[in-house]
Structures are given as C-alpha cells and as structure tokens.
Nucleic acid binder design. Sequence first.
RNA 1: GGCCCCGUCGUCCAGUGGUUAGGACAUCAGAUUUUCAUUCUGGGAACGCGAGUUCGAUUCUCGCCGGGGCUACCA
Length: 460
Amino acid sequence: MSEHPGVTGSSRYRFAPSPTGALHIGGARTALYNWLAARHDGGELILRIEDTDRERSTPEHVEQILDSLRWLELDWDDGPLFQHADAESHAEALERLLESGAAYRDPATADDVRAWKAAHGSERGYRGAPNGDAADAAVRLRVPDDGDTVVDDVVRGPVRFPNRSFDDFVIARGDGSVLYNFAVAVDDARSGVTEVIRGDDHLSNTPKQLLVLGALGHEPPRYAHLPLLHGPDGKKLSKRHGAASVGELRDSGYLPAAVRNYLALLGWGTTDDTTIMSTEELVRRFEVKDVGRASAIFDEKKLRWLNGRFMREMPLDAYTEAVARFVGREPDEDLRAACSIAQEKAQTLAEVWPLIRFLFEDPVPDEKAWRKVMRSETLPLLEDAGAVLADAPSFDPQAIEEALAPVLERHSVKPGKLYQPIRVAITGSTISPGIFESLAALGRERTIRRIEEALVRQSG
RNA sequence: GGCCCCGUCGUCCAGUGGUUAGGACAUCAGAUUUUCAUUCUGGGAACGCGAGUUCGAUUCUCGCCGGGGCUACCA
C-alpha cells in the first residue's frame, strides 16, 4: 500500500510492549523470539510502544524497557514508535468505520452491558444500537451474530471463535481516544507488519483485531501465540517471583548471552537436544513454527548453571570487562589478574567480587571461619609458613606450593590443616580461589603482613 | 457463567501407531580436590484419568479432571 513506505514485501515483525511496568522475562522472551525470527529470515523488526493507556504508561517505564532490550543486546530496525502519537490515523480509521456503519456510537456503560447480559444470558455477547444523539458516547464495533472468526495460528493451528460469543466491543472511548484492540490492528496494518509473535494472553484478542482489520479492508498478518511463562508456583509470572524482570536478572549477575540462550529454550528446543547455543546458532536454528504449545515455568537454577557455563568459557578479556562493569571498577591489570584466578569458580558476575575482594581491600575476618580454622595448634604452622614464604625464591603459584611443602612434612599435617588457616589469614574467609594462586596474586609483601596480623590476632 | 488454549521425569526441551520413552537442570550415591566451585561416573525419576478407533496407543478421537488466558470506555 502506498501509505506504507519501506514495506518491501519481505517479512516485518514487531515487538510491542506496553510501558506499564518493567520488562518481564515473559516480555523479554517475546522480544527475543521476534528478534530471532526476524534475524533468521532476514526480515525487519519494529519496536512499538503500546501506550494508549495514558494513565498507566510512563516515560520511566519506556526507558526501562529500552534499557532492558539494549542490555539483552536485542536491536530493532524501526522505532521506537509510540502508539499514541499516531492518533490521526486512528481517528481517520475510526471515522471510516463510523461512516460505513461498521461501528457505532453507543452510550451504554459497562454497567449497562452487564445488565444487558444478565437479561440476555451469557451465550451471546452484548449487541447495542446506534444512538445518534450521543456524540460523546463510546464507539463499538458491530460484531456479526453468525459465523466464526478463525485465527490461523502458526503455533496452534486454526482456532475458531464463534462471533456470537463476542460483545460489540468498544474501540474508542467517549473522548475519541482509541482502545488497544483497535489501535493494534490499525498500527499493524499501517506499518505493514506481516508477522505477529506475542503472548498467548492475546490469542483471545486476536479475533477482535481480525474483525477490525476486516472492517477496514486490511489483510491480516500471520499470528503466532507463545505459551505463557509461569513462576515456580505454577502461577502466572509476576513481581513476587524473584528475578522476574530483566533488570533483576542483570543485577543478579547474569550474562546477556546466557539469558538469551536460556529464554530461547523456554518454549522452544532443538530436535537433537542441543542445550548450549551461541546467539548465532540460535538465529540459525530458531523457527517460530517449532515453538511448543504448553506454558513453561521459569527455573532460575538452570539459568544459573547455563550462566556458569558461559562465564567459564568466556575469553579472559571479555570476562574482566564484564566483571568490571558489574562491580563498577576499571578493567585494569589487577582486576584481570584477579579474574583469571576466579573465573572457574563463579556462576554469576555477582559471585566474583566476594572471591577476589581480598586482593583489593583488607580482609574482613569471618568470625565463624576464624573459630573453625584458627586453633592453638595452628599457630606454629602459620608462623612457619610465614617464614618460608618470606624466603621463597620467587612468588608464583608453583614456587609457593614448593615452598610450603616442607612445612607440611615438618608438622606432618594434611594439606587442609595448613592451607585453610593461611586462607583465612589472607582472605578472612574459608572460601577463595586456589590458595597458591591467591597468594601469588596477593604478592609477598601483603601475604607476610596478613599472616603476621593473623598471628597477632590469634595469640592476643 | 461464556469463549478459547494447554496437559511427557520435580523443572525445561525432544520423540514415536510397535522405543529399554531420550537429553538438560535439579536431586541422590561415588570418584577427583587445599576451601568453595568445577569436572567425571553411576542411580532414581514422566507420557493426568476414562472410554473409543486399532492387531497394538504416550502418539489419533471423545469425555472428564487439572492448569491457564480472555470476557474493561486496561494493554
């Protein structure tokens, strides 16, 4: 159509969140699937902000959503478009329907409709009558009593809705502002959207949009409705389900690539059971028609595991970069060295700093660890270790291990009896990267000092 | 209430008119290990129920049960 510049005949996808809250993982998955599908078949992706609800939509939420998408590294080719900014075309389409008689003004209120239903039974939707006097009444779309409206869904197959069961639904408020099901249909047609991938909660809305499209004489796009995501309790995912928003995922220390991989697997899978996939592989293999039909439960344990795999396989530079961003430090040589000894130990970015903190700050003694490890008989061990380390020919992990070996023999103790007190002395905790690597990274000076401080603290 | 969707291990994802129903996370046991992790080996664990079709159903059909969505002058 001539009013659709840029429509080339290839597929056009859209992601259309409403800015009434932060982007949830459900919305993130919808965004990801649209993105994967668009990138897979070389189509375009439009980002449209569904803000016709002026009451609940806020600029802050818009920013949050854009931030989340950027963090997920999902880009778009057009937009963000704002739905409410397109009021003229909505008004124009509305006028057309009013003139053709496909829609009519009806002063009936929600209460009136309820009363009508009480009187007429619930097997047939509300049918109103035009009222010429009501210039400021809501506009309803006339829905036929006969026939079905069929949604030919890519993941569910054809789904039939008896027209009789629908109300003559409201498409515009009394003040002329349009409602969701109308705006969506008009916008999708106007921007030449050919593929609609969205949550299953919209399946029941689709026939309404089809009815609007039909009344306007537009070809409908192809629809694919994704199964909904649920929390661990099986209920619809919401704020109380922990890391439910993209922002929380980021703050929990997850990697965007791992989140993309995990989300892709929530509702879709490969025939050969491949689990870990790069984004390139995801793009190559993802097809909407292979999406499952059953709702899925978000399982953070698996995300953690997947994230750990990505963390461990990252090049050190990228790893250091990610850690630096997460903890708000410079990705300098010190941090890089610290990261190199902690990389294999952490499943999330949030777990890295506690492991390497002792290299940047004085250790904060964990009393429990101290009591458990620092016994009277460990004093001579620590003393001996301190002396040996002070004299070690060099201070790399191997040299340290070799220097410490005789201490073990002299006191005939198992390795743990020596290493744990040292660990607590230099890190304050019983948990750290490998002891030799930790000592080497800390350096001789600080090592000796911390051991001496521990001895003072312990005997004093 | 009406309309609609869904139902394979605890969870996610495969799969088939005839399979020992597969993989992953989680879990359990064992091995490795200086802590914590990692890694390795092994184990347990599922086709919601009832009919029908069929020589044979987890797979096809219907009913039931269970879960979910929509039913706003919200999106």
